[in-house]
Amino acid sequence: MTLLSVNLNKIAVLRNSRGGSEPSIAKAAHTCIDAGCGGITVHPRPDMRHVTPADVRVIAGLLRGRVEYNIEGNPFAAARGAYPGLLELAREVRPTQVTLVPDGDGQITSDHGFDLTADIETLRPVVAAFRELGCRVSVFVNAGGAGFAEARAIGVERVELYTGPYAEAFEQGDARRELAAFADTAQRAQQAGLAVNAGHDLSQANLGTFKSAIPGLAEVSIGHALIGEALYDGLSRTVRAYLDILS
């Protein structure tokens, strides 16, 4: 079964909009785990607009031995203020997986992946550093990308497909062309020895169709839609609904 990793960034956004400690990101993590999710995802950024380094540490303490911990981020973003950098955070908390994403402060959300062909030498020492910590390394990529064998050779174990274009096409009523591109990309990555994750704008409406098109899909990381849907149906119920789709 495809693992569901719940991204808790939006819980932190809501908390930060008011200040204080509510809603509790720790309670949200407990709730998702109790509902059956297989992982928790966070994406700390240097500007700390949502999940903070303190959140990363708190969640690490409550996840030990329970579910997987996936930390996303830009490995090339320098330390700033209370943000120590992605590698240092990983060194502190030793997540199950790090997902390398080429985002910057100017982006509202992640909107593209690495080009494994062009970026392979830049990524090589970064991947090695995370592997030395015992982290599984996944790299955020676009559909249609290449360089999967080269990525596997430097220690990358997974790629995460940026599914924003698929979600947009699905909402517009015809995602067949995008699905074909994602299926082809996933197959080529798997043939190179990489497992395939996916994430960005996946929802209850579009997840089943996507999963059916990607045999062997290892993991989906879902936050924005899941937290939005949970406002109406409750967090536990919404997590279980996603698990039903994935099963």
Rank of each mutant, 00 (worst) to 15 (best):
G113Y: 10
L226D: 10
H43P: 08
D201A: 07
A26K: 01
H30I: 01
L194N: 10
F210V: 01
R124Q: 14
T31H: 00
R158Q: 14
L123R: 04
R15D: 03
T31P: 02
K10A: 08
R45Y: 08
D244R: 15
D111E: 14
P46M: 10
T31S: 02
I245D: 09
N74A: 03
Q204P: 05
G216P: 00
I214Q: 13
A180Q: 10
P102G: 06
A146M: 02
A192S: 12
V58W: 00
L87H: 14
Q187H: 11
V58Y: 05
I33T: 07
A192D: 08
G85Q: 12
R49Y: 11
A241D: 15
G20H: 04
N206R: 03
L62D: 05
P125Y: 14
F130E: 05
S110R: 06
R94E: 10
S203R: 00
T238L: 11
M1S: 12
G164E: 13
F182M: 13
I245C: 13
A205L: 08
S203K: 10
V141F: 08
I40F: 12
N206H: 11
L8N: 02
L100C: 03
Q97A: 03
T209H: 07
R237W: 04
A35P: 06
R94K: 15
T52Y: 08
L123G: 00
S247N: 15
I120M: 12
D105Q: 09
F210C: 04
E219W: 07
K27A: 05
A151P: 11
I108K: 12
A183H: 14
F148H: 10
S5D: 01
S21W: 02
L62T: 00
N9E: 08
A167K: 04
R80N: 05
P23F: 14
A189D: 15
D184S: 13
S247K: 12
G65E: 08
E168Q: 05
N142F: 03
A195F: 09
